[in-house]
Protein backbone atom coordinates (compact mmCIF):
# COMPACT_ATOMS: atom_id res chain seq x y z
CA UNK A 1 0.00 0.00 0.00
CA UNK A 2 2.81 2.37 0.95
CA UNK A 3 4.67 1.48 -2.21
CA UNK A 4 1.59 2.16 -4.31
CA UNK A 5 1.13 5.55 -2.62
CA UNK A 6 4.78 6.38 -3.19
CA UNK A 7 4.50 5.40 -6.85
CA UNK A 8 1.34 7.47 -7.30
CA UNK A 9 3.18 10.44 -5.80
CA UNK A 10 6.05 9.90 -8.21
CA UNK A 11 3.68 9.83 -11.21
CA UNK A 12 1.82 12.91 -10.03
CA UNK A 13 5.00 14.80 -9.18
CA UNK A 14 6.60 13.97 -12.53
CA UNK A 15 3.47 14.85 -14.50
CA UNK A 16 3.08 18.16 -12.68
CA UNK A 17 6.74 19.10 -13.16
CA UNK A 18 6.57 18.26 -16.86
CA UNK A 19 3.30 20.07 -17.40
CA UNK A 20 4.62 23.29 -15.87
CA UNK A 21 7.94 23.15 -17.64
CA UNK A 22 9.35 25.03 -20.60
CA UNK A 23 8.84 21.83 -22.66
CA UNK A 24 5.07 22.35 -22.56
CA UNK A 25 5.48 25.95 -23.58
CA UNK A 26 7.65 25.19 -26.58
CA UNK A 27 5.66 22.22 -27.88
CA UNK A 28 2.75 24.61 -28.14
CA UNK A 29 4.70 26.39 -30.90
CA UNK A 30 4.42 23.65 -33.58
CA UNK A 31 0.90 22.88 -32.34
CA UNK A 32 -0.18 26.50 -32.76
CA UNK A 33 1.52 26.84 -36.15
CA UNK A 34 -0.16 23.69 -37.45
CA UNK A 35 -3.57 24.74 -36.10
CA UNK A 36 -3.18 28.07 -37.90
CA UNK A 37 -2.33 26.17 -41.07
CA UNK A 38 -5.47 24.01 -40.84
CA UNK A 39 -7.55 27.07 -40.00
CA UNK A 40 -6.19 28.85 -43.06
CA UNK A 41 -6.78 25.89 -45.39
CA UNK A 42 -10.37 25.49 -44.13
CA UNK A 43 -10.74 21.96 -45.55
CA UNK A 44 -14.38 21.77 -44.40
CA UNK A 45 -15.41 24.43 -46.92
CA UNK A 46 -13.93 22.75 -49.99
CA UNK A 47 -16.44 21.72 -52.67
CA UNK A 48 -14.56 18.58 -53.55
CA UNK A 49 -14.62 16.73 -50.22
CA UNK A 50 -12.60 13.79 -51.58
CA UNK A 51 -9.80 16.15 -52.59
CA UNK A 52 -10.11 18.00 -49.28
CA UNK A 53 -9.78 14.71 -47.37
CA UNK A 54 -6.80 13.70 -49.50
CA UNK A 55 -5.06 17.04 -48.88
CA UNK A 56 -5.89 17.00 -45.17
CA UNK A 57 -4.54 13.45 -44.94
CA UNK A 58 -1.35 14.50 -46.70
CA UNK A 59 -0.86 17.22 -44.12
CA UNK A 60 -1.59 14.80 -41.27
CA UNK A 61 0.96 12.30 -42.56
CA UNK A 62 3.76 14.73 -43.43
CA UNK A 63 3.18 17.44 -40.85
CA UNK A 64 1.52 15.81 -37.88
CA UNK A 65 2.79 12.21 -37.94
CA UNK A 66 6.29 12.97 -39.17
CA UNK A 67 6.92 16.14 -37.23
CA UNK A 68 4.47 17.17 -34.51
CA UNK A 69 4.21 13.73 -32.87
CA UNK A 70 7.97 13.00 -32.75
CA UNK A 71 8.83 16.50 -31.58
CA UNK A 72 6.19 16.61 -28.83
CA UNK A 73 7.05 13.13 -27.60
CA UNK A 74 10.73 14.05 -27.75
CA UNK A 75 10.13 17.01 -25.47
CA UNK A 76 8.32 14.92 -22.86
CA UNK A 77 10.03 11.57 -23.45
CA UNK A 78 13.55 12.84 -22.98
CA UNK A 79 12.80 15.40 -20.29
CA UNK A 80 10.79 13.10 -17.99
CA UNK A 81 13.88 11.19 -16.90
CA UNK A 82 16.55 13.08 -18.85
CA UNK A 83 15.55 16.35 -17.18
CA UNK A 84 16.13 14.80 -13.76
CA UNK A 85 19.46 13.45 -14.97
CA UNK A 86 20.46 16.79 -16.44
CA UNK A 87 19.52 18.63 -13.22
CA UNK A 88 20.98 15.81 -11.09
CA UNK A 89 17.72 15.65 -9.09
CA UNK A 90 17.34 12.00 -10.12
CA UNK A 91 19.38 11.21 -7.01
CA UNK A 92 16.48 12.25 -4.77
CA UNK A 93 14.30 9.64 -6.49
CA UNK A 94 16.90 6.89 -6.55
CA UNK A 95 17.46 7.01 -2.78
CA UNK A 96 13.74 6.58 -2.01
CA UNK A 97 12.39 3.10 -1.31
CA UNK A 98 10.81 2.74 -4.75
CA UNK A 99 12.32 -0.01 -6.93
CA UNK A 100 14.12 1.45 -9.91
CA UNK A 101 11.85 -0.32 -12.39
CA UNK A 102 8.87 1.42 -10.81
CA UNK A 103 10.65 4.79 -10.95
CA UNK A 104 11.04 4.43 -14.71
CA UNK A 105 7.50 3.11 -15.16
CA UNK A 106 6.26 6.05 -13.08
CA UNK A 107 8.09 8.50 -15.31
CA UNK A 108 6.71 6.79 -18.41
CA UNK A 109 3.19 6.69 -16.97
CA UNK A 110 3.41 10.40 -16.20
CA UNK A 111 4.51 11.31 -19.72
CA UNK A 112 1.93 9.17 -21.57
CA UNK A 113 -1.23 11.08 -20.51
CA UNK A 114 0.54 14.41 -20.97
CA UNK A 115 1.87 13.74 -24.46
CA UNK A 116 -1.20 11.81 -25.54
CA UNK A 117 -3.53 14.48 -24.13
CA UNK A 118 -1.68 17.27 -25.89
CA UNK A 119 -1.36 15.42 -29.19
CA UNK A 120 -4.97 14.20 -29.19
CA UNK A 121 -6.16 17.71 -28.34
CA UNK A 122 -4.09 18.99 -31.25
CA UNK A 123 -5.43 16.26 -33.56
CA UNK A 124 -8.96 16.95 -32.33
CA UNK A 125 -8.40 20.64 -33.01
CA UNK A 126 -7.37 19.92 -36.61
CA UNK A 127 -10.39 17.66 -37.10
CA UNK A 128 -12.74 20.20 -35.58
CA UNK A 129 -11.42 22.92 -37.85
CA UNK A 130 -11.65 20.62 -40.88
CA UNK A 131 -15.40 19.95 -40.38
CA UNK A 132 -16.84 16.80 -41.92
CA UNK A 133 -13.49 15.86 -43.41
CA UNK A 134 -12.02 16.12 -39.93
CA UNK A 135 -14.67 13.80 -38.47
CA UNK A 136 -13.74 11.14 -41.00
CA UNK A 137 -10.03 11.67 -40.34
CA UNK A 138 -10.52 11.34 -36.57
CA UNK A 139 -12.10 7.91 -36.95
CA UNK A 140 -9.63 6.77 -39.59
CA UNK A 141 -6.37 7.93 -38.04
CA UNK A 142 -6.90 7.75 -34.28
CA UNK A 143 -5.23 4.31 -33.78
CA UNK A 144 -2.17 5.42 -35.74
CA UNK A 145 -1.84 8.57 -33.63
CA UNK A 146 -2.22 6.77 -30.29
CA UNK A 147 0.10 3.89 -31.13
CA UNK A 148 2.79 6.10 -32.68
CA UNK A 149 2.75 8.48 -29.71
CA UNK A 150 3.22 5.70 -27.18
CA UNK A 151 5.91 4.02 -29.29
CA UNK A 152 7.88 7.26 -29.64
CA UNK A 153 7.60 7.90 -25.91
CA UNK A 154 8.94 4.44 -25.10
CA UNK A 155 11.87 4.84 -27.50
CA UNK A 156 12.74 8.29 -26.13
CA UNK A 157 12.61 6.95 -22.57
CA UNK A 158 15.10 4.31 -23.63
CA UNK A 159 17.35 7.07 -25.00
CA UNK A 160 16.98 9.00 -21.74
CA UNK A 161 18.06 5.97 -19.74
CA UNK A 162 20.99 5.05 -21.97
CA UNK A 163 22.43 8.35 -23.18
CA UNK A 164 23.61 11.26 -21.10
CA UNK A 165 22.65 13.73 -23.83
CA UNK A 166 19.37 12.03 -24.70
CA UNK A 167 17.86 15.09 -26.40
CA UNK A 168 20.73 15.20 -28.86
CA UNK A 169 20.38 11.55 -29.75
CA UNK A 170 16.58 11.77 -29.88
CA UNK A 171 16.72 14.73 -32.22
CA UNK A 172 19.15 12.94 -34.53
CA UNK A 173 16.77 9.98 -34.44
CA UNK A 174 13.62 12.06 -35.03
CA UNK A 175 15.04 14.21 -37.80
CA UNK A 176 17.52 11.90 -39.44
CA UNK A 177 16.43 8.31 -38.88
CA UNK A 178 12.72 9.03 -39.14
CA UNK A 179 12.80 11.53 -41.99
CA UNK A 180 15.71 10.24 -44.05
CA UNK A 181 15.81 6.50 -43.42
CA UNK A 182 12.01 6.34 -43.20
CA UNK A 183 11.77 7.55 -46.78
CA UNK A 184 14.51 5.43 -48.30
CA UNK A 185 13.74 2.69 -50.79
CA UNK A 186 13.86 -0.94 -49.64
CA UNK A 187 13.11 -2.37 -46.23
CA UNK A 188 15.53 -0.04 -44.42
CA UNK A 189 12.54 2.27 -43.85
CA UNK A 190 11.17 -0.28 -41.40
CA UNK A 191 13.60 0.97 -38.76
CA UNK A 192 11.46 4.11 -38.49
CA UNK A 193 8.40 4.27 -36.24
CA UNK A 194 6.79 6.68 -38.68
CA UNK A 195 6.77 3.99 -41.36
CA UNK A 196 4.35 1.89 -39.32
CA UNK A 197 2.32 4.98 -38.47
CA UNK A 198 2.06 5.82 -42.15
CA UNK A 199 1.02 2.27 -43.00
CA UNK A 200 -1.79 2.55 -40.44
CA UNK A 201 -2.83 5.97 -41.70
CA UNK A 202 -2.89 4.95 -45.34
CA UNK A 203 -4.85 1.82 -44.43
CA UNK A 204 -7.32 3.94 -42.42
CA UNK A 205 -7.75 6.48 -45.22
CA UNK A 206 -7.99 3.96 -48.04
CA UNK A 207 -11.82 3.64 -47.95
CA UNK A 208 -12.01 7.40 -48.54
CA UNK A 209 -9.67 7.38 -51.49
CA UNK A 210 -6.36 8.20 -49.79
CA UNK A 211 -3.64 6.53 -51.80
CA UNK A 212 -0.38 5.30 -50.33
CA UNK A 213 2.83 6.01 -52.28
CA UNK A 214 3.61 3.46 -55.03
CA UNK A 215 3.87 -0.05 -53.56
CA UNK A 216 7.23 -0.83 -55.21
CA UNK A 217 8.68 2.14 -53.39
CA UNK A 218 6.68 2.24 -50.15
CA UNK A 219 6.51 -1.58 -49.77
CA UNK A 220 3.61 -1.46 -47.28
CA UNK A 221 2.88 -4.15 -44.74
CA UNK A 222 -0.62 -4.95 -43.46
CA UNK A 223 -2.30 -2.72 -40.89
CA UNK A 224 -2.37 -5.60 -38.41
CA UNK A 225 1.35 -6.18 -38.83
CA UNK A 226 2.00 -2.44 -38.37
CA UNK A 227 -0.12 -2.43 -35.19
CA UNK A 228 1.82 -5.35 -33.79
CA UNK A 229 5.09 -3.78 -34.84
CA UNK A 230 4.29 -0.54 -32.97
CA UNK A 231 3.06 -2.42 -29.91
CA UNK A 232 6.11 -4.68 -30.02
CA UNK A 233 8.46 -1.71 -30.40
CA UNK A 234 6.85 -0.05 -27.37
CA UNK A 235 7.15 -3.13 -25.20
CA UNK A 236 10.68 -3.94 -26.37
CA UNK A 237 11.90 -0.35 -25.83
CA UNK A 238 10.36 -0.20 -22.38
CA UNK A 239 11.75 -3.60 -21.44
CA UNK A 240 15.22 -2.56 -22.62
CA UNK A 241 14.92 0.75 -20.74
CA UNK A 242 13.84 -1.08 -17.56
CA UNK A 243 16.72 -3.53 -17.84
CA UNK A 244 19.28 -0.77 -18.37
CA UNK A 245 17.83 1.47 -15.67
CA UNK A 246 17.77 -1.38 -13.17
CA UNK A 247 21.51 -1.99 -13.49
CA UNK A 248 22.88 1.35 -14.59
CA UNK A 249 24.97 3.37 -12.18
CA UNK A 250 24.58 7.11 -12.64
CA UNK A 251 27.91 8.29 -11.31
CA UNK A 252 27.47 11.84 -12.52
CA UNK A 253 24.60 12.62 -10.15
CA UNK A 254 26.76 14.00 -7.31
Amino acid sequence: MRLLRAWQTLVWLSARRMLFSSSTLVVLLPVAISLLFVLHRNYGAWDDSARAFDRFSRFLVAGYLLFVIPICTLAYGTSSLGGDREDRTLLFLLVRPIPRALVLLGKFSASVPLALGLLLACFGGYCLLAGEVGRLAWNAYLPAVVLSTIAYLAVFHLFAVVFRHATTVALIYALFMELVLGHMPGIIKRVAISYYGRVLMYAGGEPWGVRAPPAQWFEPISATAATWALAGLTVASLAAALAVFQWREYRDLT
Partner: peptide, 14 residues
Protein backbone atom coordinates in the same frame (compact mmCIF):
# COMPACT_ATOMS: atom_id res chain seq x y z
CA UNK B 1 18.45 21.37 -24.78
CA UNK B 2 14.94 19.99 -25.32
CA UNK B 3 13.08 23.34 -25.68
CA UNK B 4 15.82 24.72 -27.93
CA UNK B 5 15.75 21.62 -30.11
CA UNK B 6 11.94 21.70 -30.38
CA UNK B 7 11.80 25.40 -31.26
CA UNK B 8 14.74 25.21 -33.62
CA UNK B 9 13.37 22.25 -35.55
CA UNK B 10 9.89 23.83 -35.61
CA UNK B 11 11.36 26.93 -37.22
CA UNK B 12 13.54 25.18 -39.74
CA UNK B 13 11.72 21.95 -40.55
CA UNK B 14 8.06 22.41 -39.77
Amino acid sequence: AAPIAVTWSSLFTF
